[in-house]
Write a protein that binds this DNA or RNA. Structure first.
Lengths: 162, 162
DNA sequence: TTGCTCCTCACGTCACGTGAGGTGGC
DNA sequence: TTGCTCCTCACGTCACGTGAGGTGGC
């Protein structure tokens, strides 16, 4: 029998699910429970509620609380500023997502046109070969040796001795 | 002689040049002069100085002061929040400029490839015509009437009566 | 002299955090 | 009963705005 591991275990929980009651969330965010209630009253955070009315904070809620804590405690911002920063961050995120979409679209168009170009070139070569094929009937000396190659200069094909 | 116009005149001044002394700038921004000095001490604004040391605010400075006024008076933000918002707005601006550049670049690539595609197609048709040209020597019935057109279906070219 | 500039210091106000106090259900 | 939850009210602190007070040059 293998020895039982006694290390701390992480419990997998979807990050949006309400799992922490206020005292736990407050401790995780390093805040006073009353402060959390205040933030909720100001619309900065919206924990779920149990059927009995107890607040239930999700992992995401705790992240958000930590972000608020950072802005207020470390940067000295007030709550109005926190609200505005959240708004701007949303805008910035949207802008970056638009940019990524734009990049993907541009790449798609580029690839499509590249393919089309290749298709046309291929067809081009095929057609050249097709009409050259009959051979003997075409005037001698006018026949390019290797498809397009001969167009370059139209001169004889022997090595030009110096 | 035409009548002299007595309407208010706008004086053209480059928006970055220091032109307003503190009392004027304060009035334009609807603030107490002392408040402007305080903002400067906090690094929120940096007016030019005259050789004697008098503060000289530019048009841009006044705009910035108005924006601060809006954030503090209307939104209730404190100065730490104003600083952070300025930072985020810079980021957002940069992001939007990058996006515009990306858009321009994508359009340029698209246009270039479109042109290349057109060039290859044109050359394609020219080559077809060139080899078809000798006429009588090429087998009858295999000659397309209008370059590429005839490839569609390869059938007779008369009007198909119903 | 008047009205501006410069500066520093100090006070009033307001937002925010937190503690107290009282209630109710496992 | 203990320890949590819920709520409201109130107080201490701190940032910010502004006024006072004293200086100096057009």
């Amino acid at each position: 029998m293998a020895t039982r591991r006694r290390t701390t275990q992480r419990i997998e929980v979807s990050s949006g699910r309400g799992v922490f009651m206020i005292s736990v969330a407050a401790e995780l965010a390093d805040m006073h429970p009353q402060t959390l209630r205040m933030y909720e009253a100001r619309g900065l955070i919206e924990p779920k509620r149990s059927p009995k009315g107890t607040r239930l904070y999700s992992q995401e809620d705790v992240e958000r609380l930590r972000r608020i804590q950072e802005m207020t405690a470390e940067l000295g911002m007030n709550l109005a500023g926190v609200e505005r920063v959240f708004e701007l961050e949303l805008e910035l995120e949207r802008s970056q997502r638009r940019m990524e979409a734009l990049e993907r679209r541009a790449e798609k168009i580029r690839a499509e046109m590249e393919a089309e170009l290749e298709r046309v070139r291929r067809q081009f070569r095929a057609e050249i070969v097709r009409y050259v094929a009959p051979g003997p009937l075409v005037r001698a000396g006018k026949v390019p040796r290797f498809g397009l190659r001969a167009r370059r200069g139209d001169a004889g094909d022997g090595p030009t001795a110096g």
